[in-house]
């Protein structure tokens, strides 16, 4: 079980609005899932180097700059636009 205060803290980091019922349920579920993961990991502490992304023995392709979406196309799926950009509410103080 993860304490409700910690669930709310994680939800704030993830920018998720959760109702009280979700907070209680997630506290319980995350507790079970993380306990399972911790149990497995604790039994295998000898691991040394972390995994690193490779291309299965091949060279990664170069990251080449190429033209992207036209501005109008990029704006087309936006819920709200203003002039040449996305429209958003003014950032307030609350976080």
């Amino acid at each position: 079980m993860i304490p409700e205060s910690e669930v709310r803290q994680i939800a704030a980091l993830a920018r998720l609005d959760l109702d009280d019922q979700e907070v209680r349920r997630l506290g319980q579920e995350l507790g079970q899932i993380l306990a399972y993961i911790e149990g497995i990991m604790a039994a295998l502490k000898e691991a040394d180097q972390p995994w690193q992304a490779r291309a299965n023995g091949r060279e990664l392709e170069a990251d080449i700059v190429a033209p992207g979406l036209e501005q109008a196309a990029a704006l087309q799926g936006a819920p709200a636009t203003e002039g040449p950009g996305f429209q958003v509410p003014f950032p307030g103080d609350a976080t």
Partner: peptide, 13 residues
């Protein structure tokens, strides 16, 4: 409301 972060939270929630 008028707050950007609150809009994110509501949209995702």
């Amino acid at each position: 409301g008028d707050d950007l972060v609150e809009m994110y939270r509501q949209t995702r929630g």
